[in-house]
Amino acid sequence: MNVQFKKGVLELCVLVLISKKDQYGYELAQNISRKIEVADGTLYPLLRRLTKEQYLSTYLAESSEGPARKYYALTDHGKAYMNLLVEEWNQFSNAVNDFIEEVLN
């Protein structure tokens, strides 16, 4: 997929995945790259930015295997932001689907 296009949507995917369950960076990268082809490394700048803007909060938690992990959780502020993005995305994707249907069918 087009890079410019994908990057904007990545933010939404990250917020939605974290809203389901707090996750650490590696876990999040795995969950996203299962469906979208993306360089895992680009997630970390995104996570930093979202944390800085207080959409996400972080905490360290011990793990049964290996070292402590940094978990990301959605804040109330982040939840409101996610809902806004979801709404925008739905409007946008509906419009695009309408065009495709009109023209191709």
Partner: peptide, 23 residues
């Protein structure tokens, strides 16, 4: 953050080269 990514990835049986490629 990246060090943690490598630690967890290696613990899950991936090689360093594989992880670098994915990053």
């Amino acid at each position: 953050d990246f060090l943690e990514h490598f630690d967890i990835g290696l613990a899950n049986g991936k090689s360093e080269e594989e992880l670098v490629l994915e990053l």
